[in-house]
C-alpha cells in the first residue's frame, strides 16, 4: 500500500520535471547538431560553439551585460541599504507606508509598463534638451537600478527589524560615534540581507529583457537583446550553443553556492 502511495506522487513530479526541462534538453542536444537545423539532429559537431566564440557581437554583448549587472547591482545595493536604514528609523508612519507602497510599484507593475514608462521619461527629457538619441548605457543603468532597488530594500528591512534597538544605543553609550556604531553594530547584523539583495539584483539585471528592450539604444546592447534580435531571424544552432553555455555556467554557480552554504552551515554547527 505504501509502495503504491509513493509511486503516484513521484510519477507526478517526474512528469512536471519533464515539462520544465524538455525545452532545455532539446536545446542542449541540438546545440551539437552538425547541420543548420534546429529541429532535426543529423550528426555530432562542435562547430556552433566555435561560432559563438568567433561572433564579436555576442562577446561584446556579454561584456556589456556583465558591466551593467555589476554597476547596477552595486549602486542599487548602496542606495537600497541606506534607504532601508532610513526607512527603519523614520518616525512618521504615514510617510513610511507611502514610501513602501511606491517601492512596491516596480515589483507589481507589468514589466512592459515599467519599460515603456521609463522610456517615455527618457525620451521626454531628451526632447527637452534637444537630444534624439538619449537611449544607451546611462538610461539602461538608471532602469536597472530602479527595478533592483525594491529587492534590495525588501531583503534588508526584515534584518533591521530583527536587531535589538538598544544595541546601537549601548554602543553609543560606550563611546561609539553614531557612524561607527552603525558600522560596528548594525552593519554586521544586516550583512546577510545586504548580500541576498545584492545577489538578487545582480541576477535580475543579468537576465532582464523586457525593461532593457525599451530603454536600450543601438550603441549599448546586452545579451538578452542580442538574443532577441537573433530569434527574430531564422535561428541557427549557434544560439542554442550560447544558451547551453549560459545554462552550464548558471548550474555551476548554483552548485558552488549550495556547497559553500552547506560548508558554512557545518562550520556554524561545529
Amino acid at each position: 500500500m505504501t509502495g503504491r502511495k509513493k509511486v503516484l506522487p513521484n510519477l507526478y513530479i517526474a512528469l512536471i520535471m519533464l515539462f520544465l526541462y524538455a525545452p532545455m534538453l532539446v536545446m542542449i542536444v541540438l546545440s551539437f547538431n552538425s547541420s543548420v537545423s534546429t529541429s532535426v539532429m543529423s550528426g555530432f559537431s562542435l562547430k556552433w560553439y566555435a561560432e559563438v566564440f568567433r561572433d564579436r557581437t555576442t562577446l561584446h554583448a556579454l561584456y556589456n551585460t556583465l558591466v551593467l549587472a555589476v554597476f547596477s547591482s552595486l549602486i542599487a545595493t548602496v542606495i537600497g541599504t541606506v534607504a532601508a536604514v532610513g526607512l527603519y528609523g523614520m518616525k512618521k508612519k504615514w510617510l513610511r507606508s507611502m514610501v513602501l507602497t511606491v517601492t512596491n510599484i516596480p515589483m507589481m507593475n507589468p514589466e512592459i509598463v515599467m519599460g515603456i514608462s521609463l522610456m517615455l521619461l527618457f525620451v521626454f527629457v531628451g526632447n527637452l534638451v534637444g537630444k534624439t538619441d538619449v537611449l544607451g548605457f546611462p538610461t539602461m543603468l538608471i532602469a536597472h537600478i530602479t527595478f533592483n532597488l525594491p529587492y534590495v530594500i525588501l531583503s534588508v528591512l526584515p534584518k533591521l527589524r530583527k536587531i535589538d534597538p538598544h544595541l546601537a544605543e549601548a554602543a553609543q553609550d560606550l563611546g561609539c560615534t553614531p557612524v561607527s556604531a552603525f558600522f560596528k553594530v548594525v552593519l554586521p547584523n544586516i550583512s546577510s540581507g545586504i548580500i541576498t539583495g545584492l545577489m538578487m539584483a545582480f541576477t535580475l539585471s543579468l537576465d532582464d529583457f523586457v525593461i532593457s528592450y525599451f530603454v536600450s539604444g543601438p550603441q549599448f546592447q546586452t545579451l538578452p537583446i542580442v538574443i532577441f534580435s537573433m530569434t527574430k531571424k531564422h535561428v541557427k544552432p549557434d544560439m542554442y550553443a550560447l544558451s547551453t553555455l549560459i545554462f552550464v555556467s548558471v548550474l555551476l554557480l548554483l552548485v558552488i553556492m549550495n556547497i559553500s552554504q552547506d560548508r558554512a552551515e557545518k562550520k556554524r554547527r561545529a
Partner: peptide, 21 residues
Amino acid sequence: LLIMLPMWMNFLIRTYSWISI
C-alpha cells in the same frame, strides 16, 4: 533547486526552444 533552475535561464531562449518541439 530543480524548479528554480529554469528561471535562471533567459526566457526568450526557453520559449524559443518550444518551437523545436
